[in-house]
């Protein structure tokens, strides 16, 4: 189990996103509000920083340690401004069998690809379906997978659904790829008789748009083992929240009504503030699409991911 966050909007210092809020992602590594497990398995981000060299290529930072004590991260976050961010703290079971290392830290960004992805969840019994899943993935992508987790394979599957995994991708094409990947995972689970609850909360971005899912396969069918998911009851449908930010603007039709122009959106597994005011809970089985809209500002669309 993990915690993730993403941002799209006006450039802001990374410090404002990662540290300043009183329940920031860095704090969630050791003090999450909506889960009992600590997130000690590593930290990473991909940040798109305007004004830097090759701004479409994100600055990436991944360490297998706890961000709380990371002085390099702290100084970096104070210096860099980002217009888009995908960040993640990795939660793993307190078990020596878990593989904690750089290769398993999110977000994933294969060399040459434009989309970064982070995952909050766990595909139950993934080992049983891994071989069949691999056959669904383009060989050149499968060859680049370094880690041992289901998350990186989900990332490779999403990229495989695109016409060109290494080219520029529009938000609609990316959304179709995500939906296709979830559908394919569902088919593989069914083929292998896997019917245990498995959350697939994803955030992905290419710096121009942001997509997030709140989705769980077989919700309500808890694993019978001693795992985190086997005992979680309170927040059993893995949470996802978002906060649109912006300012009052002039009405386009001159009617005097002042619509809110959304100029930034934060998405996170749980609110980054102790107060939940201003945060909206994403519906279960949904996909959030955040992208620039004609006329300025950002559009936020929620789509149902279907049965």
């Amino acid at each position: 189990m993990c915690r993730l966050m993403a941002y799209l909007g006006d450039p802001v210092p990374l410090e404002d996103l990662l540290y300043r809020p009183d329940a920031s992602l860095v704090r969630q590594a050791v003090d999450p509000q909506l889960m009992s497990l600590l997130n000690l398995g590593g930290f990473g981000f991909a940040a798109w920083a305007p004004g830097t060299r090759d701004p479409d290529t994100p600055l990436t930072y991944r360490v297998a340690t706890i961000p709380t004590f990371d002085r390099n991260l702290r100084t970096l976050a104070a210096k860099v401004e980002a217009a888009a961010l995908v960040a993640h703290v990795r939660g793993v079971g307190y078990d020596a069998r878990e593989r904690v290392g750089m290769q398993n830290v999110h977000p994933f960004l294969l060399e040459g690809a434009t989309i970064a992805l982070a995952h909050n969840g766990d595909l139950h019994d993934f080992a049983r379906m891994r071989a069949d899943l691999q056959s669904e993935i383009r060989p050149e992508l499968a060859a680049m997978v370094e880690g041992t987790t289901d998350s990186e394979w989900i990332y490779a599957l999403v990229l495989s659904m695109l016409d060109d995994p290494f080219g520029a991708v529009g938000v609609e094409d990316a959304a179709a790829a995500v939906e296709g990947a979830i559908e394919r995972l569902g088919g593989l689970r069914e083929a292998h008789g896997i019917g245990v609850q498995s959350p697939v909360n994803l955030v992905l971005s290419d710096g121009h748009w942001l997509i997030a899912t709140r989705f769980t396969f077989d919700y309500g069918w808890y694993p019978s083992d001693e795992s985190f998911f086997g005992s979680e009851r309170e927040h059993d449908f893995t949470t996802l929240w978002y906060a649109p930010g912006g300012c009052e603007g002039e009405a386009e039709n001159g009617s005097g009504v002042a619509p809110r122009a959304t100029t930034s959106v934060v998405v996170a597994s749980e609110p980054l503030t102790k107060s939940f005011a201003g945060w909206l809970e994403a519906p279960e089985y949904s996909m959030l699409l955040v992208a620039p809209r004609d006329g300025g500002g950002l559009g936020v669309e929620i789509r149902d991911l279907g049965l």
């Binding site: 009405a251 009617s255 009504v257 936020v300 929620i302």
Partner: peptide, 12 residues
């Protein structure tokens, strides 16, 4: 929460 989302997503 449904009501909050609805209000937030409606400009006017």
């Amino acid at each position: 929460r449904v009501m909050a989302r609805t209000v937030a997503s409606t400009p006017a």
